[in-house]
Every structure is written in structure tokens, then in C-alpha cells.
């Protein structure tokens, strides 16, 4: 009897949320496309600056910096947003900038805010989708969750239309150059950085480095791999000659050196304090609430992602010799 009551009141509550979701979704559609702006951060390199995560009904999943590079022959898209809605808006923005066809879509990594808008582009057979050689496996194992969460967070009723076919991905292992017509871009696969399958893009002509989520600006870095190797990647990035950059989250007008050194400082604190916690027998339960919290005021969304970064580092470093 009691449990029946609980269940039915729960259904009611869920139904209410669901109805709210679909109504808000409708209200947004009318005048949003023109509000989706891109800026040319370097000659031929266009970026849309997304809101800060997490995704919500208000931002409709527009939470990542995504964009495109225009050559003389065709266009390369770099990341496609959280949903078909965001992907279509990016596509419309491209068509406002150029009439050249899109020849390449590059996915920097599997996270949904970079990936799930892909089908807005793939109906066209002349488009090649590029990803890290580990991306197809990540799509296979994660996309079910991502599709379910899409419904949960954005109220997208057409989740099935968002399903990504992993066999579409042309795998990149090492370096790969693509000529967009008098403009060569270079794709590079990284080993363990933000994830175990990050792909970066460099526009050689302007020295513009598209970092995906390997580098964060203002937003707390997120660790979905191994902190020691990620840290080594940042050292490598610091040596690059970067004239312009795009990072997945946060503002794009801060000096590149500052971004890298801030992130390295955060990792140094994490590494040092996690190792100290392990040596001093501070349990993981306590460490997530004590390690690295001096960094709290320096980052957006710290409370949301930092504990997880501690967990990821701790469970790795506790096996260090």
C-alpha cells in the first residue's frame, strides 16, 4: 500500500518535470538560430563560444566552444555540440560564413557536448568524420548513457536520431594532414590527456591550435584519464608555438601561457596533495574534501568536478611505487 503511494507520487512528479521540459524546449526554438554567433579568432578560424557546463534547459546543451576552419576548397568542422539542435545551429552558422562545402568533421573526444550533434552533418556522403583511433570504442561503450542523459537533461524527444555510428569514424593514429585548399590542417592523436583519446587540430597557416578539452580556460580541468601522463602532455603543449588557440570550455581571450601554467599548477597541487594524503593514510573518503581545496576560488565549477579529479588521481597514485 505504502509503496504504491510512493510510486504513484513519483510518477506524478516525473510527469510534471517532463511536461515542463517539453514546453520550455518549444519556447526556445523560434528565434535562437540567429543568436548562435561565431567569431573569427584567426583568419579562417571561426568559433562559437559556449556557456559554462553543465547543460540545462536554459543553455540547451550549448556548453562547449566548437567551430570550423575555412580553406579555399572546403570547410573542416571541429566538434559538433551536445545535440542535433546545437549541431544544426553550427551548420547554419557555417552556411552564413561560406558557400564552400564541408569536407571534414573532426571530433576531439567522446564527451557528449563535443559529439552528439554529429548527425546534423553526416547525411552528406562527401563528409569524412575524423577521430582518435580509440574513439570508435568509446562511442560504442558510452553512447547509450549519453543518449539517455540527453533525454534527461535536454528533453530531446528524438534521442534515437542522435545515435552515433562508430564505423563512420576515420581513425587517426599519430599525425594526419588534411588539405582544405591552400590551407593544411594537422590532426594529432594524444595518448592519455583529458581522456585516452584526445585529438587536437592545428591550422598551420595561422598557428591556431584547437585543443579540444586537453586545455581548459577558467573552467576547472577535468581528468578522465591518468594525471601523470596528462601532466606530461601539458609540458609538451607549453613548448608549442601557439599563435591563436581554441579550448573546449571557457573564454578564449586569455594568454595561452597563462592557461597552461594555471592548469599545470592545479595538477601540481593535485599530485602533491594526493600523494601526501596517501603517505599520511588519509582515506579517499576524506581526501576528496581536503585535497586541493585551496584551488577552489580559482576555477569555475570546482565543486562539481574537483572531487572526481581527486578520486581519479588517488585511485591511480595509490599504486605508485
Amino acid at each position: 500500500m505504502v509503496s504504491t503511494y510512493v510510486t504513484s507520487s513519483l510518477i506524478l512528479r516525473i510527469l510534471l518535470v517532463y511536461l515542463m521540459v517539453s514546453r520550455i524546449a518549444f519556447a526556445h526554438d523560434a528565434n535562437e538560430a540567429s543568436a548562435y554567433t561565431v567569431q573569427e579568432i584567426a583568419e579562417g578560424n571561426f568559433v562559437h563560444e559556449g556557456n559554462f557546463p553543465p547543460q540545462s534547459l536554459e543553455n540547451r546543451g550549448d556548453i562547449a566552444n566548437i567551430g570550423f576552419i575555412v580553406g579555399e576548397k572546403c570547410v573542416a568542422v571541429i566538434d559538433v555540440g551536445s545535440s542535433l539542435h546545437v549541431g544544426s545551429m553550427l551548420k547554419a552558422a557555417i552556411q552564413r560564413v561560406t558557400r564552400l562545402p564541408i569536407c571534414a568533421v573532426i571530433i576531439t573526444h567522446v564527451h557528449p557536448d563535443h559529439l552528439l550533434g554529429l548527425n546534423a552533418f553526416t547525411k552528406d556522403d562527401s563528409i569524412t568524420v575524423y577521430g582518435h583511433h580509440r574513439l570508435p570504442k568509446q562511442i560504442r561503450t558510452r553512447s547509450r548513457f549519453y543518449l539517455e542523459s540527453l533525454e534527461q537533461y535536454l528533453g530531446a524527444g528524438n534521442t534515437a536520431d542522435h545515435a552515433i555510428d562508430p564505423s563512420l569514424v576515420t581513425p587517426v593514429n599519430g599525425l594526419l594532414s588534411i588539405d582544405l585548399g591552400n590551407r593544411v590542417i594537422e590532426l594529432k592523436s594524444w595518448d592519455y590527456a583529458h581522456t585516452d583519446h584526445d585529438l587536437s587540430v592545428t591550422d598551420i597557416k595561422t598557428g591556431t591550435f584547437w585543443a579540444g578539452d586537453i586545455v581548459f580556460s577558467e573552467h576547472v580541468p577535468i581528468l578522465d584519464s591518468n594525471i601523470r601522463q596528462y601532466n606530461a602532455v601539458l609540458e609538451e603543449l607549453q613548448k608549442l608555438d601557439v599563435q591563436h588557440y581554441v579550448v573546449g570550455h571557457g573564454s578564449l581571450d586569455r594568454p595561452w601561457d597563462v592557461l597552461i601554467s594555471e592548469q599545470r599548477r592545479y595538477f601540481r597541487v593535485l599530485l602533491r596533495e594526493v600523494r601526501a594524503a596517501i603517505v599520511n593514510d588519509i582515506s579517499l573518503m576524506d581526501a576528496v574534501n581536503t585535497v586541493g581545496w585551496t584551488e577552489r576560488d580559482r576555477w569555475h565549477n570546482f565543486d562539481m568536478y574537483h572531487r572526481r579529479n581527486v578520486t581519479t588521481s588517488y585511485t591511480d597514485l595509490e599504486w605508485e611505487d
Partner: peptide, 17 residues
């Protein structure tokens, strides 16, 4: 909806309203 799906995978969209 109760299953509430892979929070562990949902970087960049964790918070539940």
C-alpha cells in the same frame, strides 16, 4: 528516468537540477 544513467560518464553535464 530513475535509472539516471552513468553520472560517472557525464563529464560536462553532471548536475541534476
Amino acid at each position: 528516468i530513475l535509472t539516471f544513467i552513468g553520472a560517472s560518464l557525464l563529464f560536462c553535464q553532471l548536475a541534476l537540477a
